[in-house]
Computed example of a mutant assay.
Amino acid sequence: MANSTTTVLDVDWAVDWLRRSAAVVAENRMALIELDRAIGDGDHGENMDRGFSAIVEKLDSEPPATPGAAFKLAAMTLMSKVGGAAGPLYGTAFLRAATAVGDVPELDSAAVAAALAAARDGVVARGKAEVGDKTMIDAWTPAVDAAAEAAAAGSRPAAVLSAAATAAEAGAASTDPLVAHKGRASYLGERAIGHRDPGAVSSALILRAAALAAGADA
Rank of each mutant, 00 (worst) to 15 (best):
P88T: 13
T135N: 06
D138S: 10
A26G: 04
G84N: 06
P63S: 03
G87C: 09
G40S: 09
E106Y: 02
A114T: 13
A213I: 08
D43K: 06
V8I: 10
A54L: 13
R20H: 01
V160C: 01
I206Q: 07
L35T: 07
P157T: 01
L212D: 13
V144M: 10
V25L: 04
V123N: 08
D12R: 15
K72Q: 14
D60Q: 12
P157I: 00
G132M: 10
D121N: 15
P177E: 04
D103P: 00
E149H: 12
A70N: 03
A129K: 11
A143Y: 06
G199N: 08
A2I: 03
T141F: 06
G183R: 05
V104A: 14
A129L: 07
A54H: 07
D49L: 01
G194F: 10
E169R: 15
A74P: 07
G42R: 08
R50Q: 12
P88Y: 11
V101K: 10
P198N: 11
K134R: 10
G127H: 11
A119N: 08
V15P: 01
L188K: 08
A85P: 08
D217W: 00
T5A: 12
V179I: 15
P67A: 01
L95V: 02
Y187V: 01
D103N: 13
A93F: 15
R37D: 09
M79V: 14
L95F: 14
D36S: 09
L212Y: 00
W17D: 00
E130T: 08
R37I: 00
A163H: 06
A168E: 05
A110F: 00
A209W: 03
T141W: 13
G83R: 10
G83K: 12
L107F: 02
A216W: 04
A173M: 12
V11S: 04
A86R: 02
G68D: 03
I33M: 11
S4V: 14
A139C: 09
A129R: 10
L35N: 07
R96V: 02
T5N: 09
D41Q: 05
D16Y: 00
T99G: 09
A125L: 14
A69P: 01
E106K: 12
G102P: 12
L59R: 07
A86Q: 05
L161P: 09
A204T: 11
W140P: 08
G40T: 10
V101Q: 08
R126N: 11
D41P: 07
E149R: 15
P64I: 09
R37T: 15
G68I: 08
A74K: 07
V201D: 12
A150G: 05
G127F: 09
D217G: 09
A69T: 03
G102R: 11
A93W: 06
G84A: 06
V24N: 01
K72R: 15
V11D: 02
N47P: 06
V104S: 11
H195N: 14
M48Q: 02
A93Y: 09
T66E: 02
D103F: 00
A170M: 11
S203R: 00
E149Q: 15
A150K: 13
V160Y: 01
M76E: 14
E57N: 10
E106N: 09
